[in-house]
Write a protein that binds this DNA or RNA. Structure first.
Length: 293
DNA sequence: AAGTTATCCAACCGCGTCTGA
DNA sequence: TTCAGACGCGGTTGGATAACT
């Protein structure tokens, strides 16, 4: 007994959507304040599409909050940085770029960014320099940088948690006295905890969870893990040898394609790695604020 | 102008995960 | 706990268009 098909394919339309179909779908969702059951939606609306097709059309095209137009340099940079951390988890990446769909990011990656990284001598799968994928003479210094960076993340997390805790108790205390405090507390909360939101998202997971090396991605992720809890517990940075990796596994790239020099891989990888590690730490995560608005 | 190749991206497909009975 | 239905995700395809010869 095989899996039941997602929809009865007989009599169902495939291919590009017409303006009329778009209108029917959008009107239905807007009127009902949501899509409800995707499977029953086509029957209710009379659309000759399967629910899956409707869902895709809505999420990738009709949704009102979709941002159109070319990716900004900031978005490009974020996509590359997140891809280095998350791999091909397009939905997770898309969740950090409001208005961009997973499909759009995936397409953008496959048609633009992948090529650009390749032309820079960087393997788009591993984010490592192609020429030095098996041995990396300077890996010790990279691991060191990575260690430092992980410690920075952890430190920032702890501070954010502490700050949130303080604010929370402060809010609870004052809330009884003054209910009008609500707005200001909300504001404080939203401005201070975006780091925690990153940390508690899949980005944070990717940094801290030890995963089984089942797949390329998992392998990469497990290589990326730092023993952050241990770092915190012992208040000291672990030796590089204790890391699961002997290679760095996340780096940024210089996005201006005309500024690249693919004949200097060592240099570019150093620069690339440094750029990622230059992710504004020091608790200044405001550069990400826009992405969590 | 016509034919060919490259590029882009919307849409499809199959599988994994989630959820509720 | 099991199972089936529904949903969501990531890989892939194919049509439209642009660029090139």
């Amino acid at each position: 007994m095989g899996r039941t098909p997602c929809c009865d394919k007989k009599g169902l339309k495939k291919g590009p959507w017409t303006a009329e179909e778009d209108e029917i779908l959008a009107n239905y969702i807007n009127k009902n304040g949501g899509h409800g059951s995707w499977r029953s939606l086509p029957k209710i609306t009379g659309l000759l599409r399967c629910g899956k097709s409707c869902r895709l059309r809505w999420t990738n095209y009709l949704r009102p909050d979709i941002k159109r137009g070319p990716f900004t340099p900031e978005e490009e940079k974020l996509v590359i940085q997140l891809h280095a951390i998350l791999g091909n988890r397009w939905a997770a990446i898309a969740s950090q770029l409001p208005g961009r769909t997973d499909n759009e990011i995936k397409n953008f990656w496959n048609t633009h960014l992948k090529k650009r990284l390749k032309s820079m001598g960087i393997d788009p799968k591993t984010h490592e320099p192609v020429a030095s994928s098996t041995s990396y003479p300077n890996h010790k210094s990279h691991a060191s940088i990575l260690t430092r960076h992980m410690a920075q993340w952890e430190s920032a997390r702890l501070e954010a948690e502490a700050r949130l805790s303080t604010e929370s108790s402060h809010f609870n205390n004052s809330n009884n006295n003054n209910n009008n405090n609500h707005n200001s507390s909300e504001k404080t909360d939203s401005s201070s905890d975006y780091f925690l939101r990153i940390w508690n998202s899949e980005v944070g997971d990717a940094f801290r969870n030890v995963q089984k090396p089942d797949t390329d991605h998992d392998t990469k992720m497990s290589r990326c893990q730092s023993p952050i809890s241990a770092v915190t517990a012992s208040s000291s940075v672990k030796e590089e040898s204790e890391w699961k990796t002997d290679k760095f596994c996340a780096e940024d790239v210089i996005l201006e394609s005309d500024s690249t020099s693919s004949n200097d891989l060592e240099d570019s990888s150093d620069t690339a790695l440094q750029l990622l590690f230059d992710f504004p730490m020091n608790n200044d995560m405001s550069f990400l604020e826009n992405y969590f608005a």
